[in-house]
């Protein structure tokens, strides 16, 4: 690529996005899928990912910059494996315009909110609409209410989450990255719901 000394102006509408080289499927028994996490800042997206990928929980908040990339493989009971290539996006407003870069071509979107924050639930609904408009048509979407360990501070009723997810054809779960509650279940459930390639 010939690099000149000047650069095209900020563009957010470029086609393509970040996609693995291969089409996302290695073979029928071993899937490789792109997963993106979206949601307001501070709802615990990175914590969910780090709990899932490394089994760790760090209570000190580390603001994600741009997006972090991690991968983790899940083995299912039917002896298939699913390798998740996870884009953990930053929740900050300034990165909102860049989100298409990360969710374009994603097979799975996990939209996260914080059960103690109604604002984050509103933001989650924004992301769901955005994905319905601009995401892949057959994208698997999960709605996740995180920080379920903070029951006493809950402000978003479970039923609200269930209702909204049902209306939008999403899978719903409440998790706690802190206690690891439902984290693995989340990803296993997603893996089960993935469309399987028909054997050739």
């Amino acid at each position: 690529m010939g690099c000149s000394s000047s650069v095209p102006d900020r563009n957010t509408g470029r086609a393509g996005g970040i996609n693995p080289d291969s089409g996302g499927v290695i073979d029928a028994k071993n899937l490789r899928v792109k997963l993106v996490l979206l949601g307001d800042s501070g709802v615990g997206k990175s914590c969910i990912v780090l709990r899932f990928v490394r089994g760790q929980f760090d209570p000190t908040s580390k603001v994600t910059v741009g997006a972090s990339f991690l991968s983790q493989t899940v083995a299912l009971q039917d002896s298939t494996t699913v390798k998740f290539e996870i884009w953990d996006t930053a929740g900050q407003e300034r990165y909102a315009a860049l989100a298409p870069l990360y969710y374009r071509g994603a097979a799975v979107a996990v939209v996260v909110y914080d059960i103690t924050s109604p604002e984050s639930f509103t933001k989650a609904q924004y992301w769901v609409k955005e994905l319905q408009k601009h995401g892949s048509p057959d994208i698997v979407m999960a709605l996740v209410g995180n920080k379920a360990d903070l029951q006493e501070k809950r402000e978003v009723p479970v039923q609200d989450g269930i209702d909204y997810a049902e209306k939008n054809g999403m899978f719903f779960i409440e998790t706690s990255a802190k206690t690891a509650d439902n984290i693995n279940q989340l990803f296993e459930e997603i893996a089960k719901r993935l469309p399987r390639p028909s054997p050739t």
């Binding site: 970040i18 990175s46 780090l50 580390k62 603001v63 994600t64 910059v65 741009g66 997006a67 972090s68 990339f69 991690l70 953990d88 930053a90 990165y95 860049l98």
Partner: peptide, 14 residues
């Protein structure tokens, strides 16, 4: 100064 870069590889507008 952004701790998250240490956690995993990142791709970020700058």
């Amino acid at each position: 100064s952004s701790e998250s870069f240490r956690t995993s590889e990142s791709f970020s507008p700058i």
